Every structure is written in structure tokens, then in C-alpha cells.
Amino acid sequence: KKYAKSKYDFVARNNSELSVLKDDILEILDDRKQWWKVRNASGDSGFVPNNILDIVRP
């Protein structure tokens, strides 16, 4: 599994996007496009722009 940390707050604008808060740790589900599909600690998933994410190295 790959993880990323959010650098900023992001508010979803539709139901395919995921609202995240700065410093959230997110599991990366799909990173093939500019919007990555991620899952948060609550189990919710959706798309966020990859420019707000930093890859977390294990």
C-alpha cells in the first residue's frame, strides 16, 4: 500500500471528490492521473488533486 499526506485542506466540490484536511494521511488507491483516488482513515474514498499530496515514505 502507498500513502500520502495532505499539504492543504481541500473541500470536495462533487460526490466523486473527497474533502481532506491538512496533514491527513491517505491511502493511495489510484495515482495514474492528475486527480488521485485516495481513502481516508474513516474508510471514505474519492478523488483529490495530486498537487496537494506528498508521498509518505515508509
Rank of each mutant, 00 (worst) to 15 (best):
34 Q>G: 13
58 P>Y: 15
15 N>Y: 15
16 S>T: 10
6 S>L: 02
23 D>V: 01
31 D>I: 05
15 N>R: 12
20 V>Q: 00
12 A>Y: 01
55 I>H: 12
52 I>K: 03
30 D>Q: 10
12 A>F: 01
12 A>W: 01
32 R>G: 14
48 V>W: 00
32 R>Q: 14
41 A>N: 12
19 S>T: 09
44 D>H: 15
53 L>F: 09
47 F>L: 08
2 K>A: 04
48 V>A: 04
12 A>M: 05
6 S>C: 03
34 Q>N: 05
41 A>V: 13
29 L>C: 11
15 N>E: 14
26 L>G: 01
36 W>F: 14
4 A>H: 03
34 Q>Y: 10
8 Y>V: 12
18 L>S: 01
22 K>T: 09
33 K>L: 14
19 S>C: 07
9 D>A: 08
56 V>T: 15
25 I>R: 12
36 W>H: 04
28 I>P: 01
19 S>K: 06
35 W>S: 13
46 G>H: 01
33 K>Q: 14
55 I>S: 12
53 L>S: 02
31 D>T: 11
10 F>P: 00
51 N>A: 10
49 P>G: 01
17 E>P: 02
18 L>N: 00
44 D>A: 13
25 I>Y: 12
6 S>A: 10
51 N>T: 13
52 I>E: 02
11 V>F: 08
8 Y>A: 14
21 L>N: 06
29 L>T: 06
6 S>Q: 00
42 S>F: 11
28 I>W: 00
30 D>G: 06
51 N>H: 10
51 N>S: 13
10 F>D: 01
1 K>G: 04
38 V>I: 06
24 D>N: 05
6 S>Y: 00
17 E>C: 06
3 Y>Q: 04
16 S>W: 07
33 K>H: 13
36 W>G: 02
18 L>K: 01
6 S>I: 08
38 V>P: 00
32 R>K: 15
10 F>K: 02
21 L>M: 14
10 F>E: 00
50 N>A: 13
47 F>G: 04
39 R>Q: 10
11 V>A: 14
43 G>W: 05
16 S>M: 15
38 V>H: 00
43 G>E: 03
33 K>Y: 13
53 L>E: 02
49 P>W: 03
31 D>Y: 07
57 R>C: 14
50 N>T: 10
46 G>A: 03
55 I>D: 11
57 R>V: 12
11 V>L: 08
13 R>C: 05
4 A>W: 07
44 D>M: 14
13 R>I: 08
40 N>F: 02
12 A>L: 02
22 K>N: 04
44 D>F: 09
4 A>G: 13
14 N>Y: 15
1 K>I: 10
39 R>A: 10
53 L>N: 00
27 E>Q: 10
46 G>V: 01
53 L>D: 01
39 R>L: 09
9 D>I: 08
54 D>G: 11
35 W>G: 12
55 I>G: 11
7 K>Y: 08
3 Y>L: 08
25 I>Q: 11
23 D>W: 07
31 D>H: 08
17 E>N: 06
8 Y>M: 13
20 V>C: 15
22 K>Y: 04
57 R>T: 14
24 D>Y: 00
32 R>V: 10
22 K>F: 03
13 R>K: 07
34 Q>K: 11
51 N>W: 08
38 V>C: 13
56 V>W: 11
55 I>K: 14
35 W>Q: 15
52 I>H: 15
57 R>Q: 13
28 I>V: 13
6 S>W: 00
40 N>P: 02
16 S>A: 11
31 D>S: 10
37 K>W: 08
58 P>G: 02
36 W>V: 13
49 P>C: 04
28 I>L: 12
1 K>L: 03
8 Y>K: 15
13 R>V: 08
18 L>G: 01
3 Y>D: 02
44 D>K: 14
33 K>P: 10
56 V>F: 10
3 Y>C: 07
23 D>K: 05
37 K>S: 10
39 R>C: 09
50 N>M: 11
13 R>A: 07
27 E>A: 05
24 D>C: 08
9 D>N: 11
46 G>P: 00
8 Y>R: 12
4 A>D: 03
23 D>Y: 08
54 D>T: 11
18 L>P: 00
21 L>E: 12
49 P>L: 04
57 R>A: 12
45 S>A: 13
30 D>W: 05
49 P>D: 08
18 L>A: 01
26 L>C: 07
4 A>T: 14
1 K>D: 14
41 A>Y: 10
15 N>H: 11
38 V>R: 00
41 A>E: 10
23 D>T: 09
56 V>N: 15
34 Q>S: 14
3 Y>A: 02
5 K>G: 02
1 K>N: 12
18 L>M: 09
7 K>M: 12
22 K>R: 09
53 L>M: 10
10 F>S: 02
11 V>E: 10
50 N>L: 09
24 D>P: 00
35 W>A: 14
29 L>W: 07
19 S>F: 03
37 K>F: 14
26 L>I: 10
40 N>L: 09
52 I>A: 08
44 D>Q: 14
15 N>V: 10
52 I>S: 04
22 K>W: 01
56 V>L: 12
25 I>W: 12
38 V>S: 01
23 D>M: 06
18 L>H: 03
32 R>H: 13
17 E>R: 03
30 D>E: 12
41 A>C: 11
24 D>Q: 08
26 L>N: 01
2 K>C: 05
53 L>R: 00
25 I>F: 15
39 R>T: 09
49 P>M: 03
39 R>I: 06
54 D>K: 13
23 D>I: 00
9 D>W: 03
23 D>C: 09
56 V>A: 12
20 V>N: 03
53 L>V: 08
56 V>R: 10
20 V>L: 08
37 K>R: 09
24 D>G: 05
3 Y>M: 08
20 V>W: 00
1 K>E: 07
27 E>N: 03
14 N>P: 01
5 K>Y: 06
37 K>I: 04
55 I>A: 12
43 G>P: 00
11 V>W: 07
19 S>I: 04
34 Q>A: 13
6 S>D: 00
57 R>D: 14
26 L>P: 01
16 S>K: 11
43 G>K: 05
14 N>R: 08
27 E>C: 07
5 K>W: 04
11 V>R: 09
15 N>Q: 11
33 K>N: 07
30 D>R: 03
45 S>L: 11
3 Y>W: 06
12 A>N: 04
39 R>V: 10
43 G>Y: 04
56 V>M: 13
24 D>T: 15
34 Q>T: 11
27 E>I: 07
27 E>D: 06
56 V>P: 14
44 D>T: 12
25 I>E: 11
13 R>H: 11
26 L>F: 04
33 K>W: 08
1 K>W: 03
12 A>E: 03
28 I>C: 05
39 R>P: 01
33 K>C: 13
9 D>L: 05
53 L>T: 03
35 W>R: 13
23 D>S: 10
5 K>N: 05
6 S>G: 06
41 A>I: 11
25 I>T: 15
26 L>K: 00
38 V>F: 00
19 S>Q: 05
20 V>A: 04
13 R>W: 03
45 S>G: 07
31 D>F: 11
38 V>D: 01
27 E>K: 03
48 V>L: 09
7 K>E: 07
19 S>E: 03
26 L>R: 00
55 I>Q: 10
20 V>G: 01
41 A>G: 12
52 I>W: 06
25 I>V: 13
32 R>A: 14
4 A>C: 15
32 R>I: 06
45 S>Q: 08
16 S>P: 07
40 N>H: 14
50 N>I: 11
8 Y>I: 15
22 K>S: 06
29 L>D: 03
44 D>L: 12
9 D>F: 07
28 I>N: 02
31 D>E: 14
41 A>K: 14
11 V>D: 09
31 D>V: 10
28 I>R: 02
14 N>D: 05
40 N>M: 05
7 K>F: 12
12 A>K: 08
16 S>L: 08
33 K>M: 13
25 I>N: 03
28 I>E: 02
12 A>H: 03
22 K>E: 07
45 S>C: 13
24 D>K: 02
20 V>D: 00
48 V>H: 01
56 V>K: 10
47 F>S: 12
5 K>M: 07
